[in-house]
């Protein structure tokens, strides 16, 4: 099973807004730069989440209309793989 997941956003502001929304539901996440190559638009920000939170987090962000980017899971070899939930 993968351990770390990330959800990408179009800007740091939207990532911060999403992080606040998740925090209100007691879902911890870390704001970080998106690994290079995952965004076709160049630099961006993402929220890093634990696997146990990813489904709830994506559902919540979808409900609130805050999911504008993509979801990636980290493989054992360290590479990121896009996922659809």
């Amino acid at each position: 099973m993968n351990n770390l997941w990330i959800v990408t956003f179009q800007s740091v502001t939207y990532a911060q807004k999403a992080q606040r929304a998740l925090r209100e539901q007691y879902i911890d996440s870390g704001l970080r730069r998106t690994p290079m190559g995952l965004s076709s638009r160049g630099c961006s920000y993402c929220l890093q989440l634990r696997e146990k939170h990813i489904v709830d987090a994506v559902m919540l962000l979808q409900e609130k209309g805050m999911l504008s980017g993509k979801v990636f899971a980290q493989r054992k070899d360290g590479r990121w793989e896009e996922r659809t939930l």
Partner: peptide, 14 residues
């Protein structure tokens, strides 16, 4: 953010 775009990002406030 959105660094490869030649235009400014559409999203506010950036």
């Amino acid at each position: 953010t959105d660094s490869v775009s030649r235009d400014m990002p559409l999203a506010l406030p950036e």
